[in-house]
Amino acid sequence: MTTVLVADDDLDIRELVAFKLAQAGYEVRSAPDGAAALDLARAGGVDIVVLDLMMPGLSGLDVCAELRRQEATADLPVIMLTARAQDQDVASGFAAGADDYVVKPFSPRELVSRVQAVLGRTRP
């Protein structure tokens, strides 16, 4: 089963995303901050990460850049999920290595489609 790591400091968002992804047949692991997200990603078994941009401590950009730096997680697909929708925010997300960008408030159905699309693009 494909495993999605969801990192967001907002409990509602974490639960909504997890609920929708579980409905769509994914296994979901959740992290309330950047450090926990990195730990879970490094532990392995994660196929894709849905990452909030603004989290306490390590931001989503930091986590994404760190994932890209480490060999084991360098190719892990990342979707940014964030309320910051300015052009420069989107550009920063992609510059940090994100594969896609979803703006809050988000459509759960669209998020699942993006997860499927990114997995389809990035899987060998």
Binding site: D10, L16, S107, P108
Partner: peptide, 12 residues
């Protein structure tokens, strides 16, 4: 009310 502003589309 807490989740109201966080989703759009059919859920909203």
């Amino acid at each position: 009310l807490a989740v109201l502003g966080k989703v759009r589309g059919d859920g909203q």
